[in-house]
Write a protein that binds this DNA or RNA. Structure first.
Lengths: 348, 348
DNA sequence: AATATTGCCGCAATTTCCTGCAACGCATTC
DNA sequence: GAATGCGTTGCAGGAAATTGCGGCAATATT
């Protein structure tokens, strides 16, 4: 039995040096020789090293955390449309608690020879998870881009919403409305986006001289309606008159919790959501929320990935997109008896 | 009986040291040796320890129309969870107007060697589209299942919501509330689900002696919020006091249209949605809607597909799932002056 | 038309890294 | 507690892959 390179070389009618050059994508190989080698490999049944596989007509993996939160389908839609406009096809892989994990999906996508992978709020946003897996992908020269969750030092482009600013915006809005006891509820602290948002929230309150008032008004729970409801319930019991929520879904749960306590939104308790997912203008009450510029972020993520694929890697910075306060009807001014400079009633 | 490592090593033609390295995912093992070991393990019937399971098998395509309507992500989630529970991985392919078409996705999935394809409200539900493509798939013995949109005569299992009944339920509910001029708005008539729902709606009204009242109260428009709004606007102008909508999204648009006309929901105009997508209990007003049993349907679709894959094709009937009226707060009784038997005010 | 230039390929030296042997660690059993 | 069986790991031999360099052919240049 001949050695592998030798065997391929003989089948292709070239020397094993040429085969080696093809496999390592070195320069100095004619297209004719290259295709001869590749064909020989196929004929002999050798698996092509990743990167030389017929990168199937522009297939791109899109890995996302879940679909429950409407912001994720929204992201998926935007990204998919953007990719389609450039001739790429998105394969959406969503993770479920009991379903396939991210690693399995990545393996599958690699097997399928995707041109690149987009990670939207996946494991990369979890700071407690080992990130060596991404280093491995990087080493394989697989173009990847993160959305909402940078991992510095990996050289992977990342498109994020500026969560620190988002936290500040929410805090400032409520303080301007006269609130003093402002609760913060969000998902598990292991997510970098939660950490950042909380940091911005706290920094903003400290600057406004309210830091000590809200030290005990932070509750973290799962990222869904029920989590928001239970966290909000605790915060309301502790006297919070306003709630900053980690997602719109949690905000809806918070509204429900407030009402279960016999209070009204926004008359008694103000609620601020996050993301401005679709349909949030249809809720009761229409939700004041900190919009994440999903459209722009999706387009930017697609552009970054295409740059990576095309071989002109942009500098691997984190592109921060600015969130924006969308004032609807779940927040209202609060008259504080001790506050002489109470803000005016908001225009509805 | 030899020891395990030894046995595998002999079968694979390597030393037990190499086998050990493969099982522990240690570096320094050639791909060839690795695959030899893995194959040997399969041959000898040993279970692969960790994430070394073959994932290429057990890939299932899931083709869906869009992600805007929250019911589709919901379907995707349910189906994906169900597939994962049986060791299959779902690849979600969503169609966008300018994006990749269903045919492209099918081609891609075939290239990838999927075990089967699930079509959720795809082209198969469009009666104006040529269905020979599915015949082709069928001829290739590819297991496929339709959700919401049967094509009789193809022998493809289909899991649907009973749209005729859904139309009847909505109509009956509104008639019982005293409404007489009931509008119907939905998506393009080329979708079989629209046809059926309209048929059920009309049949029910006819049976109740109201057929002639609503002949001119049907408006078809695109399947989104804006479509619902424009259709509802026309119907309200024509004096409709209740609206049956083809989707929850359209219903939300309808609510908006009613309010643009200076009327209230449900006091002046009642609105009934369709599907009971997630979040519909949080809308303003909470939407009365005809629930589609997504969970049950998803599970049934997965089961049907697995049966097809396993080679015991169930009889290719259309499995009809019964919808269910979910009464929330977007419908209310209407006192008709000429109606002596006006129904009582509904309990809220 | 002769020659310079460029780029491609093969030989062979060199390097890398796979592999098996055998020793070692660890648990189970007598 | 010793023996035994099983899995792991350090090490060295060696095969396989990489790469520098020279040759060769095709094309451009004068």
């Amino acid at each position: 039995m001949a050695a592998r390179l030798d065997e391929i070389a003989r089948q292709a009618g070239v020397s094993k040096a040429t085969v080696s050059r093809v496999l390592n994508e070195r320069p100095g190989v004619s297209p004719r020789a290259r295709s001869a080698v590749l064909t020989a490999m196929d004929v002999l049944g050798y698996e092509r090293p990743n990167g030389l596989r017929p990168r199937s007509s522009g297939l791109v993996g899109l890995i996302t955390a879940e679909l429950q939160n409407p912001v994720f389908p929204f992201f998926a839609q935007v990204i998919e449309t953007g990719l389609a406009r450039h001739g790429y096809t998105a394969v959406l892989c969503t993770q479920t608690p009991e379903g396939a994990g991210e690693d399995e999906y990545v393996g599958m996508l690699l097997d399928r020879g995707v041109s690149g992978i987009l990670f939207v709020s996946g494991l990369h946003a979890d700071t407690t998870i080992d990130h060596s897996r991404y280093r491995g992908l990087r080493r394989q020269r697989l173009p990847i881009v993160f959305v909402n969750g940078d991992i510095p030092g990996l050289g992977v482009p990342c498109v994020s919403c500026d969560d620190v600013t988002a936290g500040r915006i929410a805090a400032r809005h409520l303080v301007e409305l006269g609130h003093r006891r402002i609760g913060f509820l969000s998902g598990p602290l292991r997510y970098s986006t939660v950490q950042r948002r909380l940091a911005g929230f706290r920094a903003s309150l400290r600057e406004l001289g309210l830091g000590h008032d809200t030290d005990d008004l932070v509750e973290l729970s799962p990222f869904d309606v029920e989590g928001g409801q239970s966290a909000a319930s605790l915060l309301v019991q502790r006297g919070a008159t306003a709630l900053v929520c980690g997602s719109d879904l949690m905000a809806l749960g918070a509204v429900r919790a407030v009402r279960r306590h016999g209070l009204r939104v926004p008359e008694d308790v103000s609620v601020v959501g996050a993301d401005d997912s679709p349909l949030m203008s249809f809720t009761d009450p229409p939700l004041t929320t900190v919009r994440q510029p999903v459209q722009a972020m999706g387009v930017a993520a697609v552009r970054a990935l295409l740059d990576e694929i095309k071989g002109r890697p942009a500098r691997a910075a984190e592109y921060l997109f600015q969130p924006e306060l969308v004032v609807r009807a779940s927040t209202r001014a609060r008259w504080a008896s001790h506050d002489r400079n109470a803000p005016p009633e908001p225009v509805l």
